[in-house]
């Protein structure tokens, strides 16, 4: 099996999980309701666990650095996350919409990966899939509630969030350098197939939420090749602060 292709795929998924976990965790203590505070914090904790499990596969099967080193010691250009996960939180509508579009893709991605010919990834995907179902359930409930069953104000906020987030969400499906190899070897059926199933899913939910997908949106690309937004450097600085101060610290 093409190990460079597997490594690149694992990194993409793990880095997305790590960075969105950090963004979601920024709601801890600040959520608009206690339950939502707990929800975003729990989702962040799950995502961090998923990232750690993926970094562990990279460490154990491909001798890459330890999960902690992968999370805290790499420079920006080595990260393979998409721009969607890097954007700073704004209002709650923004975070909910990002959470929805991201988790729909993650849920479907892991569904595809349960059939991966790379068995360690397939096993993890079978496990993680059941957890992300809860994330997607949470996101979908709120998108439909605030978009379709809420007030004009909540609907407008969700629409504004969708307009803003959509081009970045399309960037989740940016091809990595090994797209063909991944498909040929049955490791992952590819971003294009994922995007089609994702579009079908989100269109249905957004329709129920009376929200309109922006027409002719551009895809925001670059993350899968190490180019990131201006928000990435400050995020990394904050996220890695404790580790850089004392790499042996346990917390």
């Amino acid at each position: 099996m093409n190990s460079d292709a597997i490594k690149d795929l694992l990194l993409r998924v793990a880095d997305d999980e790590l960075i969105i976990a950090h963004r979601h965790s920024e709601w801890t203590g600040l959520g608009p309701l206690l339950e939502e505070d707990i929800a975003f914090s729990s989702i962040a904790q799950d995502k961090l666990g998923h990232a750690q499990a993926l970094y562990s596969i990279l460490h154990e099967k491909f001798s890459l650095a330890t999960p902690d080193e992968m999370a805290f010691m790499r420079s920006e250009v080595d990260l393979r996350c998409c721009h969607l996960v890097e954007l700073p939180n704004q209002d709650y509508a923004f975070s909910l919409m990002r959470h929805f579009l991201y988790d729909a893709a993650e849920y479907l991605r892991y569904s595809m990966l349960t059939k991966s010919t790379f068995e360690p990834l397939a096993q993890l995907a079978r496990k993680v899939h059941g957890e992300i179902k809860y994330h997607l359930y949470h996101a979908t409930t709120w998108v439909v509630q605030l978009g379709g069953n809420g007030t004009t104000e909540s609907h407008d906020k969700m629409q504004r969030a969708l307009d803003e987030v959509w081009p970045f969400a399309l960037g989740m499906f940016e091809h990595g350098p090994y797209e063909e190899q991944l498909k040929t070897e049955g490791i992952f059926n590819g971003e294009d197939e994922l995007k089609i199933t994702w579009l079908n899913y989100v269109k249905d939910i957004l329709n129920r939420a009376a929200l309109i997908i922006p027409a002719d949106a551009k895809h925001v690309l670059g993350g899968r090749h190490g180019y990131h937004t201006e928000y990435m450097a400050p995020l990394l600085l904050e996220m890695t602060e404790v580790y850089r101060t004392d790499p042996a610290a346990e917390w």
């Binding site: 339950e35 939502e36 707990i38 929800a39 914090s41 729990s42 989702i43 904790q45 799950d46 666990g49 957890e131 809860y134 359930y137 949470h138």
Partner: peptide, 13 residues
């Protein structure tokens, strides 16, 4: 169901 997330990852409210 009040929330699918609770005080631990494995619990709902």
């Amino acid at each position: 169901l009040k929330s699918p997330f609770g005080p631990a990852l494995c619990r709902s409210l």
